[in-house]
Computed example of a mutant assay.
Amino acid sequence: MGEVLALLAEDFPQITASKIRFLEEKGLISPQRTAAGYRKYTKNDADRLRFILALQRDQYLPLRVIKDYLDAVDRGEEPEQLPGGMKLTPQTVTESFSEEATQRRRSLTRSELIGATGATGDLIDALLQYRLIQENPVGRFTEHSVKITRSCVQLAQHGIEPRHLGIFRQSADRQVALVKHAITPLAGRKDVASRARTAETAREISDSFLAIHTSLVDAALSELDH
């Protein structure tokens, strides 16, 4: 376990033995055991852990989704991609993936955000006004702001402006409040494994909210075909 932690610590400084045991408990990794019952990790186990942690951190994928993908690979299937369009194998995190992940984690200045998304300064001001994107305390923007801004640039081509999108901010705030309320019974314990379970439960609840929203919209739009 100590050797695995040392291998992962540079890219995942928050990793702990409790987190790894939690992933094992959830069935995402299955290290061999010695006769004395000690865990015995191989290089493939370490690479698999790196893959799981990278997807959690950089793609915000729930463990359930990652596990379904890994289970399919373990069965000998060849799923084309993970949700979000990523096409990766679980044995390793490639150099190109690491570079892409680093780019996503790097916050952007206002001018970099404009350059990365094709937005105008006026659009950025409007997105800030309606709280669709936010600057951090040092005036930089995260990957979430990049995704939102790109979407809003596309919507602007259809005449949909930030002032029309304030309902999404309100809906997101209400959704977060519901999630926090739902996980209150789980949030009392502060150990790493409990925090991981709480975060995973929060993602699962959020996924269910998004599935309902998507289905409601799809159902309404399907009437346009008739």
Rank of each mutant, 00 (worst) to 15 (best):
E3Y: 11
V4A: 06
V4K: 06
L7S: 14
E10A: 09
D11I: 01
P13Y: 03
Q14R: 08
Q14T: 14
S18C: 07
F22Q: 04
L23E: 05
G27A: 03
I29F: 02
T34M: 13
A35M: 03
Y38K: 13
Y38E: 07
T42R: 15
T42K: 15
T42P: 14
K43Y: 12
N44Q: 14
D45G: 08
L49K: 05
I52Q: 03
L53P: 05
L53Q: 02
A54Q: 01
A54K: 01
A54W: 00
L55G: 05
Q59R: 14
Y60I: 10
P62A: 14
L63I: 12
R64D: 14
R64N: 12
V65E: 11
V65K: 07
V65S: 12
I66Q: 08
K67G: 12
D68I: 06
D68H: 14
Y69S: 08
Y69T: 08
D71C: 05
D71N: 13
A72M: 04
D74I: 11
R75T: 03
G76E: 11
G76V: 10
E77H: 10
P79A: 11
Q81K: 11
P83N: 03
G85Q: 03
L88W: 03
P90V: 07
V93I: 10
V93T: 11
V93W: 06
S98V: 15
E100H: 08
Q103D: 06
R104G: 04
R105Y: 07
R105F: 07
S107G: 01
T109D: 13
R110E: 09
R110F: 04
S111I: 10
S111F: 07
L113S: 08
G115H: 00
A116K: 02
T120R: 13
D122C: 06
L123K: 13
D125T: 15
A126N: 09
A126G: 01
L127A: 04
I133F: 03
I133D: 12
E135K: 15
N136A: 13
N136E: 13
V138P: 09
V138H: 12
R140Y: 07
R140M: 11
E143H: 09
E143W: 08
E143F: 09
T149K: 04
R150V: 01
S151D: 00
C152S: 09
Q154T: 01
Q154P: 02
L155A: 07
L155K: 02
L155E: 05
Q157V: 06
I160Y: 06
P162S: 10
R169P: 05
R169K: 08
S171N: 05
S171H: 06
R174Q: 10
V176G: 05
V176D: 05
L178Y: 00
L178W: 02
V179C: 06
K180A: 05
I183Q: 06
I183S: 02
T184E: 15
P185Q: 14
P185E: 15
K190V: 09
K190L: 11
K190I: 08
R197C: 03
R197I: 04
A199R: 04
E200N: 06
T201A: 15
R203T: 12
L210A: 10
H213C: 08
H213P: 00
H213N: 12
S222M: 07
D225M: 06
